[in-house]
Design a binder for these strands. Sequence first.
DNA 1: TAGATTGTTAATCGATTAACAATC
DNA 2: TAGATTGTTAATCGATTAACAATC
Lengths: 207, 207
Amino acid sequence: MVEERLPLGVAARLSRYLQILTQAKKSGKNTISSKTLSEYSSVNPTQIRRDLSAFGKFGKRGVGYNIDYLISRIKDILHTSGQHNLAIMGGGNLGTAIASSKIFADHGFNVAAMFDTDPAKAGQRVGNLVVLPVSEVSKVVEERNIIVGVLAVPPAAGQAAADALIKAGVKIIFNYSEALLDAPPGVTIHSMSPAGELLYALYFYLT
Amino acid sequence: MVEERLPLGVAARLSRYLQILTQAKKSGKNTISSKTLSEYSSVNPTQIRRDLSAFGKFGKRGVGYNIDYLISRIKDILHTSGQHNLAIMGGGNLGTAIASSKIFADHGFNVAAMFDTDPAKAGQRVGNLVVLPVSEVSKVVEERNIIVGVLAVPPAAGQAAADALIKAGVKIIFNYSEALLDAPPGVTIHSMSPAGELLYALYFYLT
DNA sequence: TAGATTGTTAATCGATTAACAATC
DNA sequence: TAGATTGTTAATCGATTAACAATC
């Protein structure tokens, strides 16, 4: 079997299916149809069947897809079965909310460190974590093998926080702030854009 | 000029441009090129020029696009110039973070109410807001003309929170929890999926 | 057997990209 | 004038959709 990088759209959709399947499993389901998956993902059911059947016959006609099996197959396709460590920049409400939720843990992402520029916050506990000063980013990122940095800081502090992570060797920056960030080649910036998505949803409501 | 609903992709991209332009303006820029917009949006520059030129000649050759002008043109196209009220369900860390940020305010969304199921939280202040009990959702949604509900609750409480909003007449649910939600026709559920997006970013890092 | 749902085809539509003349 | 960037074309590729036989 030839290993080629998936088209952007396919990788994005498979990631989305994986997230939905993980939740569906939690709610006690064992199988799921392309129709149900379509309702939760806003992807056309034919498209879903096409995406999956490109890699093998994963489903059972008349029944649907076995959730556990489909999760393991998609993880294989995306090469994302492992555990990965991430660091959160910002120990405020947002950083605390992210650290406390299982949203990343469910997919093998371990919150391995939390940093804050405020000296008064250093040493405070947030769940199992102790907030560290930004001066320790480089050391900790290397020691704990952190490849993903999550920005949960005010927009004005976004670029500085990103720079500290990048300098330390982090390769993927997940930006929860609305700041526009610059990064060198080889570093991926992924910005959440809730306001943009809300504008989009509103457009279809208004028209 | 014929008023037709935009294709999904076009509306999504225009919303994204609008969000980036709003940030770029804040950083003091007056003009922006399709190349720069491309770097921040991950949309091909030719695609951006095509999206915009479908509605008129908004740019200046050799210079780029005037940011203020482009913002006002895109708002016209998306019919999103007005002010809209939203309610946040959940007065925890996430709800507080959303209420405190300007991420929605920049785009004309006003956080008009915050609710929590915890009676101990009712009456507490979060910024300019007073946390209200869930029993008041229907009354407040009507009084304050709220059309968007933002879910910032634990996954197990997601469906109940959504149901309360929908019953009250909210038409757009913006889901920050990882819960899978069911909604009747006419109600749009828009779920954030940070874990899914992170899996996607990781795939391209690993391959 | 009857009902449901997959896997697959075929046709259409929108997205992507390179290239370049027009023009600021 | 020189450099930069838009607006636009043309060609290719991927997404979308309806439809339906296969089969659980």
